[in-house]
C-alpha cells in the first residue's frame, strides 16, 4: 500500500528538481562564469565596488526590523489579552492591509510624503515645513515598516496567546516588577515569535527593490535594485547579477542562522 502511494509524489519531485533546484544551480553557475561560460571569480570580486549598497541594504533593513519589533511587541501583547471575539476582529484588521498589493500600499506613502503632498501641506497650515521627506533613507525605512509590520505582529501574537495569564501573575506574585515581568518572563517565552518575526521582516526588507525605488528615489539603491538592473535594467549582466543574488542569499541565510541561534531549541513554526 505504502509503496504505491509514494508514486503520487513523483510529478512534484520532477517539478521540484526542474523549477526549484535547477534554477538555483543556474544562479551558482552564472555567478562563477563569465559571458563566454568560462570559470571566473571576477563577478564576486567585482562586487566590492558595490559594498556601500550592500551595507546600506543591510543597515536599512535592520533598522526597519528593529522598529517593527518595538512597535509590534506591545501591540501583540495587548491583542493577545483581549477577549476572544475582539481578538478575531483585531487580527482581521492587522491582516487586511497585507491583502492589498504592496505596490499600492507603497504608492500611498509616495503621495503622502511628497514635497507638495498631504503631510507637508498639513504642516504648512501651522507654518512648518515644507520638509524634504520623499527620496530619503528615512522614507525607505518607513516604507519597509509600513509594509512588513503585520509580518512582525502575527508571529508575536500567535506565540503570545499561548502564554497563560497565570504565568505573568505568578511572576507578579513572586515580586517581579513590570521590567522584570517583561525581561524575565514575557521575552523568554515569546522568543520563537520574535525570531520568526525578525526573519519575516528582515528578509523581504533587505531584498526589496520596489520600496527603495518608489520612496528612495535613485540615490538610495539597495541590493534588490542592483540585481534588477543586471537582469531587466540597462546593465544586463546576468553573471554579475547572479553573483549579487548569491551574496544576498548568503546574507539571508546568515540572518536566519543568527535568529535560529537566538531561538535555541524551542523552535516554533512560522505563521504561514
Amino acid at each position: 500500500m505504502k509503496l504505491k502511494s509514494k508514486i503520487c509524489a513523483a510529478p512534484y519531485l520532477v517539478w521540484m528538481v526542474a523549477f526549484i533546484v535547477a534554477p538555483l544551480l543556474m544562479v551558482i553557475y552564472f555567478a562563477f562564469t563569465d559571458k563566454a561560460g568560462h570559470f571566473t571569480l571576477e563577478n564576486l570580486s567585482g562586487l566590492s565596488q558595490y559594498s556601500s549598497v550592500f551595507i546600506r541594504s543591510i543597515l536599512l533593513a535592520a533598522i526597519a526590523t528593529v522598529i517593527c519589533l518595538f512597535l509590534a511587541y506591545p501591540l501583540s501583547f495587548m491583542l493577545s489579552r483581549l477577549r476572544v471575539n475582539k481578538q478575531r476582529i483585531m487580527l482581521m484588521l492587522v491582516m487586511l492591509p497585507m491583502w492589498m498589493n504592496f505596490l499600492l500600499r507603497t504608492y500611498a506613502w509616495m503621495t503622502l510624503l511628497e514635497r507638495n503632498g498631504l503631510i507637508n501641506s498639513f504642516l504648512g497650515l501651522f507654518g512648518i515645513g515644507p520638509f524634504n521627506m520623499i527620496n530619503t533613507q528615512g522614507a525607505v525605512v518607513l516604507g519597509m515598516v509600513y509594509n512588513y509590520l503585520p509580518y512582525m505582529i502575527l508571529p508575536l501574537y500567535t506565540i503570545m496567546v499561548k502564554i497563560d495569564n497565570s504565568l505573568i501573575e505568578a511572576a507578579e506574585d513572586l515580586g517581579a516588577n513590570l521590567f522584570h515581568k517583561v525581561t524575565k518572563v514575557l521575552i523568554p517565552l515569546s522568543m520563537p515569535g520574535i525570531t520568526t518575526g525578525i526573519t519575516m521582516v528582515f528578509v523581504p526588507s533587505v531584498s526589496t527593490f520596489i520600496i527603495s525605488r518608489m520612496l528612495g528615489g535613485g540615490s538610495n539603491m539597495m541590493i534588490g535594485d542592483l540585481i534588477e538592473l543586471q537582469f531587466l535594467g540597462n546593465s544586463y549582466n546576468y553573471n554579475l547579477g547572479s553573483a549579487m543574488s548569491l551574496v544576498l542569499m548568503v546574507v539571508v541565510l546568515l540572518c536566519m542562522s543568527v535568529t535560529n541561534m537566538m531561538d535555541g531549541e524551542n523552535k516554533e513554526g512560522g505563521v504561514i
Binding site: F19, P23, F30, V206, G224, Y238, G241, I272
Partner: peptide, 15 residues
Amino acid sequence: VINPEIITGVSMMLL
C-alpha cells in the same frame, strides 16, 4: 518560501 522573492524570480528567469 524563505528565499527572497527576487532570488526566486531571478533564478527562474535564468533557467
